[in-house]
Simulated scan of single mutants.
Amino acid sequence: MLNNGELDKVFKALSDATRRAMVERLVRGPVSVSQLAEPFEMSLPAVHQHLAVLEDAGIVTSHKTGRVRTVQLATDALTGAGEWMGRQRLPAERRLDRLGAFLDPTQGPRS
């Protein structure tokens, strides 16, 4: 379970479309930084800045072998954020279910 500060870091990291695209690519497996940077029209230092935000949030990890830095998605990196979103969704779904039942004309009058 993530505490509020950690959860804030995860959501801040994922608030950027480039970082979300990087995470989507890393779901398929680890890659070098240069391979990860290929589809983006930005400098390598800019890619490193995005990766630093993702790494600080605990979403990715990296290791260097020689001159090649490889990045991968951290195990269970998004589990805490997903659990938090699930807890927020459940009460809203219950309210919508009650509203749907209330508005359903086939339910007949209620007492």
Rank of each mutant, 00 (worst) to 15 (best):
H48Y: 14
T75N: 08
M85P: 03
D76Y: 00
H48V: 11
E38I: 11
G86Q: 04
R28S: 15
Q49G: 11
M42W: 02
L78V: 09
R94Q: 12
P39D: 03
R94W: 05
T75S: 13
A92L: 15
R25M: 10
V27S: 01
Q72D: 15
V47Q: 12
R87Y: 03
L90E: 10
D104C: 08
P105Q: 03
K12A: 07
L7Y: 00
A21E: 12
E55G: 09
G80D: 06
H50S: 02
G100N: 09
D56G: 09
L26R: 04
L26F: 01
Q49F: 14
R110Q: 14
T79C: 09
M85D: 02
F40E: 08
A101R: 12
M1A: 05
L90V: 13
F11D: 02
A74C: 11
N4W: 00
L36Q: 04
T18L: 07
P109T: 08
T18A: 12
L14Y: 01
L96M: 10
N3P: 04
D76Q: 11
A21M: 10
L103I: 03
E6T: 06
L103Q: 06
L44P: 01
T75H: 11
S111Q: 15
T75W: 04
M22H: 06
L96D: 07
E55M: 09
G5F: 04
V68G: 09
R19C: 03
T106V: 15
E41V: 06
A81K: 00
P91W: 13
R94L: 14
K64S: 04
T70G: 08
P39F: 03
A46M: 02
Q35P: 03
P39A: 03
L103W: 11
A101Y: 10
G58D: 02
M1H: 05
E93S: 15
S111D: 15
R25I: 13
V71E: 14
W84M: 12
V47S: 12
G80F: 07
E93M: 15
P109D: 01
E38R: 13
E6F: 08
K9N: 07
D76L: 10
L26V: 02
G66C: 00
A21N: 07
R89E: 11
T70H: 13
M42P: 02
A46V: 09
S15G: 13
G58E: 05
I59L: 12
R20M: 06
E55Q: 12
A17I: 10
H50T: 05
L78H: 11
E38M: 10
Q49T: 12
A77Y: 01
F40K: 07
D56K: 11
L44H: 05
V53F: 00
R20Y: 07
V23M: 07
K12D: 07
V60E: 06
A37L: 04
G82F: 01
L2P: 00
R98A: 08
V31E: 13
S32Y: 02
R67V: 10
